[in-house]
Computed example of a mutant assay.
Amino acid sequence: MTDFLLNLLLGVILGSLGGLFGIGGGLVAIPALGVLFGLDQQLAQGTALLMVVPNVLLALWRYNQRNRINRQHALALGLSSLLSATLGANWAVTVDASQMRWGFIGFLLLLALYNLLQLYRKPKPAATSLSYSWPWLVALGAVAGLLGGVFGVGGAVVATPILTLAFGASQVVAQGLSLALALPSTSVTLATYAVHSHVDWLLGIPLALGGLLSISWGVKLAHALPERTLRALFGVFLLLCALLLGWQT
């Protein structure tokens, strides 16, 4: 019972961060599971996905309540990410766990650098519509879904900065659309990892319950923070995750 409650508390923390950054908690859960529980990379990713899928679903609903998500944009991103995530996940379960871990660390560092560099760009006026139409969203969904399938993060962390920089979306709108992309891709990736026995169900279930209890707090905070602050926090968060996982490795 003590282990269950501690894991539930960890899920509360991870769920809050997932709601804040629009990522379902997976990016921080994977390093946490590797560092705190000594899980190999594929097992950490699969177990984190057990928490991520319901968190993404709830966060998507909360974001849509506060800032209506364009259904056509969400559909273009979601369908393309579903197909490519299936390919990525099936490849990821065959890769050496150590190689996967270093690949994941490199992935986090690149994302952190990208997001932090955007702080020095001149802010653009808020756009009322995306700069590019749905065919480009299909391409973005395919790339983000593929990376999400490989690294078990749903692709939201890839899509969010691209939607803000290239497509002209605000940070909150980008995070909402990224969650729409992440829901199908995380679901199919979880199924793939589960089939290959890369999910620790006893650990993942209390994490998922804790995340469901807290993710709404993170979403509420995301809408209260200035966009520049939210972007800076996201970049620092990614960097810390990479450093912690690299230290443990």
Rank of each mutant, 00 (worst) to 15 (best):
T2N: 11
T2E: 15
F4W: 14
N7T: 11
L8Q: 05
L8C: 04
L10N: 00
G11Y: 01
G15I: 00
G15K: 05
S16I: 07
L20R: 11
L20M: 08
L20T: 07
G22C: 07
P31T: 04
P31F: 02
G34E: 05
L36M: 15
L36N: 01
Q41C: 02
Q41R: 04
L43F: 04
A44F: 00
A48G: 08
M51S: 06
L57V: 15
L60T: 12
W61Q: 09
R62E: 15
Y63V: 02
N64P: 13
N67F: 04
I69V: 10
R71S: 14
L75Y: 05
L79P: 12
S84F: 01
T86L: 15
N90D: 09
S98P: 00
R101I: 10
R101N: 07
W102N: 04
G106V: 05
L108M: 08
L109F: 10
Y114Q: 14
N115D: 05
L116H: 13
L117V: 04
L117E: 10
L117Q: 13
Q118G: 08
Y120M: 13
R121A: 11
P125G: 10
P125H: 12
A126H: 05
L130A: 03
L130I: 05
S131H: 12
W134V: 15
A139Y: 10
A142E: 07
G145I: 00
L147V: 03
L147Q: 04
V150F: 04
A156R: 03
A159L: 04
I162K: 06
T164A: 12
G168T: 10
G168H: 07
G168W: 10
A169I: 08
V172C: 09
S178D: 14
L179S: 09
L183H: 10
P184C: 07
T186E: 07
T189A: 13
A191F: 13
A191C: 09
Y193D: 06
V195F: 07
V199N: 06
D200Q: 13
D200Y: 15
W201S: 07
P206Y: 02
A208M: 07
L209W: 08
G211I: 01
G218W: 04
K220Q: 14
A224W: 09
L225W: 04
R228H: 11
T229W: 11
F234R: 02
L239G: 08
L240D: 02
C241S: 10
L243N: 00
L245Y: 01
W247Y: 12
W247N: 01
T249E: 00
